[in-house]
Computed example of a mutant assay.
Amino acid sequence: MTDHVIKASARKVEGKGASRRLRLEGKIPAIVYGGKSEPVNIELDHEPLWLAQMHEWFYASILTLDIDGKKEQVLLRDMQRHPYKQLVMHLDFQRVSANTPIKVAVPIHFVGLEDSPAGKSSEVAVTKELNEVVVTCLPKDLPESLEIDLSNLQVGEVVHLSAIKLPKGVEIPELALGADHDSAIAIAKHIQAEAEEATEEAAPAADAAAEGDAAAEAKDGE
């Protein structure tokens, strides 16, 4: 597991006014909580944090938070962005314990699609139903991503969560709930069949709209 170090400093001043001043100085207010220690308010430099948050690992890896030289293992639990500026407004980090299982959403990487029978056909559309999956494991076993090999994907085939090969110590809790929770993660459909399905789904909505218009006209004519 790669060690991703995020540098931070303790933050003594709190409140909205203090947070605004921090942001004007190019810093981000944040909090670290969880474990047996009290929550700690911290601040981080915006530029390196902005670069870090552009990577997939930032959201699904154990991070090493270096607070004034004291290191803690944490997970990112929340990040608030500015609605239209390229600014991170606030971060929440949760401490993790080496012996306590964690639950994390991990990205799914699809490989081999271009070599598959479905991928080679111009008449087939392959839809990826999920981009991530929630797993449970000890912090040391957390994968940065999970890979699913689609190189043998056939036309008309549906690939489910259970097809993912999990590393040792990693589980998908949803699968423990039964076969009904073995969600589809990739589907290979004929383009014509997909178009027909879309038309069928749109028809009830169109009928409902037409009925609504007819009712409105009848009311106007009263």
Rank of each mutant, 00 (worst) to 15 (best):
M1H: 14
I6N: 00
K7N: 11
A8D: 07
A10P: 11
A10L: 14
R11T: 04
K12M: 10
V13W: 09
V13G: 10
G15F: 11
K16I: 01
K16F: 01
K16V: 11
G17M: 11
S19V: 07
R20D: 11
R21K: 15
R21A: 15
L22F: 04
R23P: 13
L24H: 14
L24T: 14
L24M: 13
L24Y: 07
E25V: 07
G26M: 13
G26N: 09
I28T: 04
I28C: 04
I28V: 15
I28A: 08
A30N: 11
V32F: 00
Y33K: 09
G34H: 03
G34F: 01
G35E: 03
G35I: 01
K36D: 13
S37C: 03
S37M: 12
E38G: 02
E38Q: 15
P39L: 12
V40N: 04
I42E: 06
I42S: 08
E43P: 02
L44D: 02
D45T: 09
H46W: 05
E47S: 12
P48F: 14
P48R: 15
P48C: 05
W50C: 02
L51I: 04
A52R: 02
Q53H: 10
M54R: 15
H55E: 15
H55S: 15
E56M: 10
F58L: 07
F58R: 06
F58H: 03
Y59A: 04
Y59Q: 06
S61Y: 11
I62K: 13
I62A: 09
L63A: 04
L65Q: 04
I67N: 00
D68G: 02
K70S: 09
K71R: 14
E72W: 06
Q73R: 12
Q73N: 12
V74M: 07
V74P: 08
V74Q: 06
R77P: 00
R77A: 00
R77V: 01
R77G: 01
D78P: 03
M79A: 07
Q80H: 11
H82C: 05
P83W: 00
P83L: 06
P83N: 06
P83R: 05
P83T: 03
Y84K: 01
K85F: 08
K85D: 09
Q86A: 08
V88Y: 00
V88D: 00
V88N: 09
M89Q: 15
M89I: 11
H90F: 03
D92Y: 02
F93E: 00
F93D: 02
Q94V: 01
Q94C: 01
R95N: 13
V96W: 04
A98Y: 04
N99P: 01
T100G: 00
K103L: 07
V104E: 06
A105I: 01
A105N: 14
A105M: 10
V106I: 12
I108R: 12
I108Y: 05
I108K: 12
H109C: 00
G112W: 13
G112D: 12
L113S: 04
L113P: 05
L113W: 14
D115P: 02
S116H: 07
P117Y: 06
G119H: 10
S121L: 03
V124A: 06
V124P: 06
V124Q: 08
V124F: 04
A125P: 00
T127H: 12
E129C: 09
